[in-house]
Amino acid sequence: MCYIAILENYSLFCSGIKSVLEEAGECKIVYEAKTITDFMNKLKVEKPDVIIFDIIHCLDDGISTIKKIRRKTSKTPILLVLSTDYSDFFEEYISLGVNGFVFNDASREKLIKAIKAVKNGDDHFPPRVWQLLKKYLRTKKVVASYEDKRMLTNREITILKLFCKGYTYKEIGVKLNISPRTVETHKKNIQTKINARSTAEMIEFAYQNKLH
């Protein structure tokens, strides 16, 4: 059983998520809140496995709210519900420690899959996220030089390419016959070598250096 906390100021939407999760029988809603203040107070008492935060019905882009949640809990996975209209913020959401995105038109199966992924310690970013992020990143400056690129091993480049395609730690591990923990180690090494602070910056490096 996965215990879920929902931050959502649009009651109808929240009811929809609740019914979907309860019908699936694999998740339990421990609490829901309409305001960040109420949510933070409840977070002091209940410790959910996953936090679902609806960005679409948020009064702003959600950046300040995510920062507040992360100051309180750095480990509880955050799953954002959003639309393609927020693609300019994808990089910042990821850099703030968001663990996954679910688009508002996703099926019940995709929502459940995303919840399971982040609960198990994987990131969940659909391929569409990287497609939209790629368009955004291509308008920015190159973040690393060719000399930096040559520092990566063949295995690291392979793993970097798979992250660009939206694969999770587990999926990359299966594909390369290595453990998810080994994949995580490779990712940390890649980020250290190219001086990337987040997954988004790592993906940006890949696209700017034609390693995707």
Rank of each mutant, 00 (worst) to 15 (best):
L7N: 04
Y10A: 09
L12V: 14
G16S: 07
G16P: 04
G16R: 08
I17D: 01
K18P: 01
K18F: 08
V20P: 01
A24W: 05
G25A: 03
E26A: 06
I29W: 01
I29T: 06
Y31D: 05
K34F: 07
I36P: 00
M40R: 09
N41V: 11
N41Y: 10
K42H: 14
K44P: 01
V45Q: 13
V45L: 14
V45C: 06
V45F: 12
D49T: 06
V50G: 03
F53T: 00
C58D: 11
L59N: 12
L59W: 07
D61T: 10
G62E: 04
S64H: 11
T65Q: 12
T65P: 00
R70E: 07
K72V: 14
T73V: 10
T73P: 00
T76Y: 08
P77D: 08
P77K: 05
L80Q: 05
V81L: 15
Y86D: 11
E91W: 02
E92L: 13
N99F: 00
N99A: 10
N99C: 11
F101P: 02
V102Q: 03
N104G: 05
R108P: 06
I112N: 00
A114Y: 09
I115Q: 02
V118Y: 09
K119L: 08
N120D: 14
N120K: 13
D123I: 13
H124V: 07
H124Y: 15
F125V: 09
F125Q: 05
P126V: 08
R128T: 14
W130I: 12
L133R: 07
K134D: 10
K134F: 10
K135D: 12
K135Y: 13
K135I: 15
Y136K: 14
L137R: 05
K140A: 04
K140H: 10
K140E: 10
K140I: 04
V142F: 06
V143H: 01
Y146W: 10
E147K: 15
R150M: 15
M151S: 14
R155Y: 06
I157V: 15
T158S: 13
I159R: 00
Y167P: 00
T168C: 02
T168V: 07
I172Y: 01
I172A: 05
G173R: 03
V174Q: 12
P180W: 04
R181N: 10
V183H: 01
K187R: 15
N189L: 08
N189V: 05
I190R: 06
Q191F: 09
T192I: 09
T192R: 14
K193P: 07
R197I: 09
R197G: 13
T199P: 02
T199H: 15
A200R: 04
I203L: 13
F205D: 03
